[in-house]
C-alpha cells in the first residue's frame, strides 16, 4: 500500500516537465526515505537522479520498498490534467499493475483520479560515489538557462572553465565563437541573484550543449542552480526542490581519446 499526498502538487508537475524529454521510461522507487528515481538517457551520456523526501509530503505511507516502472510521457500527460494549485496524491496497491494520481482542488470542490498503467523496466542502478569537486558554481538558474540557450545558437559544445577569475562558458561554431564570463557576485539584494564560485583547483571541461539545454527545463523548480565540476568526472547540475529534495543531472564530459 502506497499513499503519498503532496500539497504543492505543482512541484510534481514541474519535476515531470524537467525530466520527461531526457528519459522516456523510468522506475520510481518508493521507500521510507522518499520518492526517488535514477535513470539514464537513451544514449547513456546523462543521468538524472530525483529525490522527494518523505518529510516533504503531508502524508507519506509506503509499507514496503517498491519500484514502479512508468512511462514519463504518459505520466506527464496525466499530471498536466492537475491544476497548478491542486493537491496531488499518488496511490498504489501491492501487486497492482496501475497507479492512481488523485487531484484535489484547493477548495475541495473538484476531485479527479487518473489511473495509469505501470510497466516492467529493466534498469540497473549506478553507484554514484561521493566526490570532492574541483569547483562548485552556484548561480541563478535563469542565468544558466539563458547562457546555455545563447551559446547553443553558436555551437554544439560548451567549455566550462573555472579559474580564480570566475567561471567561463565558451563555444565555437561555423559562424564564430562566444565566451561568457561570470564573476563571483555576492553584493546583490536577494540571495537568489548571487553567483558564488568555490574553487579548490582550476578545472575546464567540455560538454554537449544539447544536454545542458535539456537540464534547464528544471529551471522552474529552483531560482538557483549548482554546477559541480571535477576533471574527468561527470558534471553535476543540481536544482534543489524547496524543503523536499533535488533533481540532479549528471553529464559525462567530452574527452580526448
Amino acid at each position: 500500500m502506497l499513499e503519498l499526498r503532496l500539497v504543492q502538487g505543482s512541484l510534481l508537475k514541474k519535476v515531470l516537465e524537467a525530466i520527461k524529454d531526457l528519459v522516456t521510461d523510468a522506475n520510481f522507487d518508493c521507500s521510507a526515505t522518499g520518492f526517488s528515481l535514477q535513470a539514464m538517457d537513451s544514449s547513456h551520456v546523462a543521468l538524472v537522479a530525483l529525490l522527494l523526501r518523505s518529510e516533504g509530503f503531508e502524508h507519506y505511507r509506503c509499507d514496503r520498498n517498491i519500484s514502479m516502472g512508468m512511462n514519463l510521457n504518459n505520466m506527464s500527460k496525466m499530471l498536466k490534467c492537475a491544476g497548478n494549485d491542486d493537491i496531488i496524491t499518488i496511490k498504489g496497491d501491492d501487486g497492482s499493475d496501475t497507479i492512481t494520481f488523485m487531484f484535489e482542488s484547493p477548495t475541495q470542490d473538484k476531485i479527479a483520479d487518473f489511473e495509469m498503467k505501470l510497466m516492467d523496466i529493466d534498469s540497473e542502478h549506478l553507484g554514484i560515489p561521493e566526490a570532492e569537486y574541483h569547483a562548485i558554481v552556484r548561480m541563478p538558474s535563469a542565468e544558466f538557462s539563458r547562457i546555455c540557450k545563447d551559446l547553443s545558437s553558436i555551437g554544439d559544445t560548451v567549455v566550462i572553465s573555472v579559474t580564480k577569475e570566475g567561471v567561463k562558458f565558451s563555444t565555437r561554431g561555423d559562424i564564430g565563437a562566444a565566451n561568457i564570463v561570470l564573476r563571483q557576485n555576492t553584493t546583490v539584494d536577494k540571495p537568489e541573484e548571487a553567483t558564488i564560485i568555490e574553487m579548490n583547483e582550476p578545472v575546464s571541461l567540455t560538454f554537449a550543449l544539447r544536454y545542458m539545454n535539456s537540464f534547464t527545463k528544471a529551471t522552474p523548480l529552483s531560482s538557483m542552480v549548482t554546477i559541480s565540476l571535477s576533471s574527468e568526472l561527470p558534471v553535476v547540475v543540481e536544482y534543489k526542490i524547496a524543503e523536499m529534495g533535488y533533481v540532479r543531472f549528471y553529464l559525462a564530459p567530452k574527452i580526448e581519446e
Partner: peptide
C-alpha cells in the same frame, strides 16, 4: 578531437 564519454565510464553499476 574530443569524443563523448558515457556515464558508465565513471559510475559503476551497483
Amino acid at each position: 578531437l574530443k569524443s563523448q564519454a558515457r556515464i558508465a565510464r565513471f559510475f559503476r553499476y551497483s
